[in-house]
């Protein structure tokens, strides 16, 4: 039986705004399946986003949804969570949103280990404003603001999250749609700040100008470049050249921010 997404989609909002071949729709579907498998009450789920293409996602899903200002998804989400810890809070945003303009909120949420689930939709470019380079644009790649090729080094989002103290960090791709669903589910089940970096494709802004002729070729690049983190442990650096790992990259049990806060201050219930 085909999966019925309608239960979680707001009626009348599709087709979505994303370009042909943009992989955000694939991730949206993975996200819906993951949430559905956890049987959350829709009234208890809050989804926040910043500004950018993926930040339009909350508008399509039937939860409490908050499309905030550029980069501030996690900061708004923090307010929601602290005010009502019973809510299941998801904060999402793109690579520019989360690691450039919102980088400060990203690292500090990781440091606090507040129980928020963060999804970073990494498509290596600012898509909505027309293909400007982001902190994850690969060196040498073309962007409208890097017409001679990207000259800056880029962020590894998962390393950034681990270094900053997130207690669950995973990477997946839009191509690996069922793996993506699994990573999202595990992240949601984890108590503490969890980050899932989701490798996505922007065929319009990034692909066309960077030797990916079709959206499918970008998906196949993900397929060919992703190595499961367990498998990667037995691979040499030479074998891993040009590849990236997917799976749960880091998981640890450590005190969650609000539990620590409430206990320390002796919060009057």
């Amino acid at each position: 039986m085909a999966y019925d997404y309608a239960k979680y989609l707001r009626p009348g909002k599709l087709p979505h705004i994303w370009c042909a071949g943009c992989t955000y729709g694939i991730v949206l579907k993975s996200m819906i399946r993951a949430i559905d498998s956890l049987n959350y009450d829709k009234n208890d789920v809050v989804v926040t986003s910043g500004i950018g293409c993926c930040s339009r996602l909350p508008g399509y899903v039937d939860f409490n949804t908050l499309h905030t200002t550029h980069g501030r998804s996690i900061a708004f989400a923090t307010g929601v969570k602290v005010a009502n810890p019973k809510l299941k809070v998801i904060a999402l945003g793109g690579d520019g949103d989360m690691t450039a303009i919102g980088g400060n909120h990203f690292i500090h949420a990781c440091r606090r280990n507040i129980d928020i689930t963060v999804f970073v939709f990494n498509n290596n470019i600012y898509g909505m404003t027309g293909a400007q380079y982001s902190p994850t644009t690969p060196k040498g790649a073309w962007a409208t603001t890097a017409p001679y090729g990207m000259t800056e080094n880029n962020f590894d989002i998962t390393s950034l999250a681990i270094g900053a103290g997130a207690s669950f960090v995973a990477r997946t791709t839009a191509y690996h749609a069922t793996h993506c669903e699994k990573m999202i589910k595990e992240a949601l089940e984890h108590k503490g700040l969890s980050v899932v970096e989701i490798i996505n494709a922007c065929p319009t802004g990034f692909g066309r100008k960077n030797k990916f002729k079709t959206p499918t070729s970008m998906l196949l690049w993900m397929k060919d470049s992703a190595v499961n983190v367990e498998k990667a442990k037995n691979m040499s650096p030479e074998e891993l050249a040009g590849k990236f790992t997917i799976g749960v990259l880091h998981k640890e049990e450590k005190p969650e921010y609000l539990e620590t806060y409430d206990a320390t201050v002796g919060l009057k219930k």
Binding site: A75, T78, G79, A83, H105, I107
Partner: peptide, 23 residues
């Protein structure tokens, strides 16, 4: 609950988020 946010922008965002949570 009180929270010292990482910057002024985050502080403003957090109060808006908290207000939307009904507080």
């Amino acid at each position: 609950r009180f929270i010292q946010m990482e910057d002024e922008i985050a502080a403003m965002a957090s109060v808006i988020g908290a207000s939307l949570a009904g507080v």
